[in-house]
Design a protein around this nucleic acid. Structure first.
Length: 496
RNA sequence: CGGGGCGUGGCGCAGCUUGGUAGCGCACCUGCUUUGGGAGCAGGGGGUCGCCGGUUCAAAUCCGGCCGCCCCGACCA
């Protein structure tokens, strides 16, 4: 069967970067727009984001937070209030300078994030210890004037969630930052089927204005790392800068302690790069816009009628079937009559639909349906099977849950296989050049050594992992750069 | 921000070196045959060649300027 000349994805193994762009385009997740650095998220891509978003939104609410909405435009004087914050973000801020024809007296920043706005707003809303804790979140777009575009991973405008909280004590704020990183970790692992190494960022890598930045780092299919989301303990930095105070039980005025945490549509890029294969997208069932696609097969109008009649009750039964607790199976019957079944098989595989059902005259006669699973090509599984119509819904639900599990197992295996303990400078340089992946080593804590590693290898200090994150690896006891006793275990990697 | 590339029907591209009726694949429309792994044949519709200026009898093609986007590197979710 001859393939069309265009619209074929590049080989993943040959050119990972181009493969990524091809998958985004061919699976109809997103396209470029007339605006530099800004993408159009198409319905299939947005549905994917919505499933991730809804799962996270539920957990954010379950952990006691409420959603709000803050202004898009931030007066320059506000943005400048916290010194380190403005220093960190100023190179990336887009400015509104005119209203109509008139130049504004004060420029307005298009929010790169909302800490400054939160500070200004909650300065007035927080008066008493009874007003604490403040636990709010917003789903919003932000703009950071990026000089390089990669759909989902790096765009000038992107969608995310930013949580903001204030607490009466430093310990409570730290707990909150840790709690929300834990919530993120659940989503990454249980929904996106992506394992992460969680921990702290170094001073050089942390959020401008934060005391501590917590992060989750994942490994993409090309062995480069991706920061999946961050959670910041802001201490009382923003409260002091914005003069936020509360009157405590003892009648003393005190600054509250803040956190902020963000999770963006970049995670969609991670799903593509972690699970995708030579045939295109592979989606974890929990977030797949379509769980099951049904492809009818027929030649004559009589056959078509018989096949349609056989599909109707199957479709209804599948839609009624529970999966993953409270979800229902999401079914699409592909009734297009301008393309052949073969075309549809390839089309839905490219788009990562976990399960395909084929129903033709032979199946109708036998009371069966052909089931094919969309698993990574290397699994060697996914051959077609004939299944009786009777227990199809339960069978499909079980398969979806098994696929979800298998994808996670597979990505954990990949991460383990590409996490290397390196104990000295030569080994660090060699392993990074030869294999890439996560490089676990000792670090003396000095910024100079951190800089040297980056300058020489291109790998950055991704994370200082929490206790137990690398349980099977005994960390080196000396700094890989200078040989001094290590005060930290560090994970270096070339990153996106 | 440095380096490179590209702007030609909806999409992907060729044509430009050497100026002379704008072409190919996909998509689209009509008909017939097809349909269990990216269908075939026949006919058909659609483009002031990114913009401005210059050279020329004549510019997609040569010259100058501008704009835009993409890719590769330094910074960032």
């Amino acid at each position: 069967m001859p393939a069309p000349a265009s619209n074929r994805s590049r080989a993943r193994s040959a050119d990972f970067g181009q493969w990524y762009l091809d998958v985004v385009r061919d699976a109809e997740l997103a396209s470029y727009s007339p605006v530099r650095g800004c993408i159009v998220v198409r319905p299939y891509g947005f549905a994917l984001w919505e499933h991730v978003r809804d799962a996270l939104d539920r957990r954010i609410k379950e952990t006691g937070h409420e959603n709000i909405y803050l202004p898009l435009l931030v007066p320059e004087s506000l943005l400048e209030t916290e010194a380190k914050h403005v220093e960190g973000f100023s190179p990336q801020v887009a400015w509104v300078t005119h209203g109509g024809a008139d130049e504004l007296a004060e420029r307005l920043a298009i929010r790169p994030t909302s800490e400054a706005m939160v500070g200004a707003v909650y300065r007035d809303l927080i008066q008493s210890y009874r007003d604490l804790p403040v636990l709010v979140n917003q789903w919003a777009n932000v703009v950071r004037w990026e000089l390089r575009t990669r759909p989902f991973l790096r765009t000038a405008e992107f969608l995310w969630q930013e949580g903001h909280t204030f607490h009466a004590s430093a310990a409570e704020a730290r707990e909150e930052a840790e709690r929300m990183l834990g919530v993120y970790r659940e989503i990454w692992q249980d929904w996106l089927a992506i394992p992460t190494i969680t921990g702290r960022k170094s001073e050089a890598e942390k959020f401008p204005g934060a005391d501590v930045t917590l992060t989750g780092e994942a490994l993409m299919g090309d062995r480069r790392a991706l920061q999946m989301g961050t959670s910041h303990d802001l201490g009382s930095n923003f409260a002091r800068a914005f003069d936020i105070r509360f009157l405590d039980r003892d009648n003393e005025r005190r600054h509250p302690f803040g956190t902020s945490w963000g999770f963006s549509w970049r995670t969609i890029g991670a799903v593509i790069m972690v699970h995708g294969d030579e045939r295109g997208l592979v989606l974890p069932p929990r977030i797949a816009p379509i769980h099951v696609v049904v492809v009818p097969i027929w030649r004559t109008v009589e056959e078509r009628a018989a096949v349609e009649a056989a599909i109707a009750p199957v479709e209804a039964a599948l839609r009624a079937q529970a999966v993953f607790g409270d979800q229902r199976i999401r079914v699409r019957v592909d009734r297009r009559d301008d393309v052949t079944p073969g075309y549809k098989f390839n089309d839905w595989e490219l788009r990562g639909v976990p399960i395909r059902l084929e129903v033709g005259p032979r199946d109708v006669a036998a009371g069966t349906i052909v089931v094919a699973e969309r698993l990574p090509a290397t699994d060697g599984t996914g051959a077609k099977e004939s299944v009786s119509v009777d227990h199809l819904p339960a069978d499909v639900a079980a398969r979806l849950e098994r696929i979800q599990t298998r994808l996670l197992e597979r990505s954990i295996t990949f991460q383990r296989a590409n996490t290397h303990r390196v104990s000295g400078w030569d080994e660090l340089v060699d392993v990074n050049a030869a294999q890439g992946g996560f490089l676990v080593t000792g670090w003396c804590g000095s910024a100079a050594c951190e800089r040297d590693v980056q300058a020489t290898t291109g790998a950055t200090l991704r994370v200082l992992p929490f206790e137990g994150e690398l349980e099977e690896l005994e960390p080196p006891t000396a700094c890989a750069r200078c040989g001094a006793p290590a005060s930290e275990t560090a994970v270096f990697a070339r990153a996106y």
